[in-house]
Amino acid sequence: MVSDAPRSPSRRSLLKRGLFGGALLVVGGTGFLALRGGRRASLPFDGLHVFSEEEYAVLEALAPRLVGNRPGWPSVQQVGVAQAVDRIVERTEPSVQAELKQLLGLFDNALAGFLFGGRTVPFTALDAAAQDRVLEDWRDSRLAIRRTGYNALRTLVLAGYYQSPLTWGPLGYPGPESSFYQPGAKAWTGGPMPRPDGNGVFHPVARP
């Protein structure tokens, strides 16, 4: 499973043309393996903004593998990682959203899995150890496009987890020093509003 299966030059060059180009849509397109369904996930209460149910299921399967599940740390479900990623991606350009959706589809897709690594079971249907091996295959791939895919998914999922203050305790991160922050301190907009001391010469209460 560690090798990149496609050895024939023509197929490799097809895959190399671009992770997000048309070539992989061909790979991910049709046929028995491509349509072989993975595991479904339970959806967030207020629905999905970007991803389909299938794509969301891939994210839910990826999250615990990428984050880890050390005792005493919040679970990916407690943090709501997959939903956080859906909301993060919602703010990206439509073309970026489309590429990420393709990537998640490709990650689960059994036909792509077969071509890349001889796997015929969707990612979401694999056990944890096998899922980790798939991630390692993408991470260590000779194909730059698969490493790009690994890095993109890793970054998104880890950002979705560590954006949560629930992680601060186990990290030993004390969080911001709240005494220095004045929520709602009025923004100076110019016009008739007198410029407050705050702009450039604000004196904090005291040095810690």
Partner: peptide
């Protein structure tokens, strides 16, 4: 935390 998590290497237990 977020900056560290996305920049520091690895995944899963090793990353944690």
């Amino acid at each position: 935390p977020m900056l560290a998590a996305t920049v520091l290497p690895g995944f899963g237990a090793a990353h944690q």
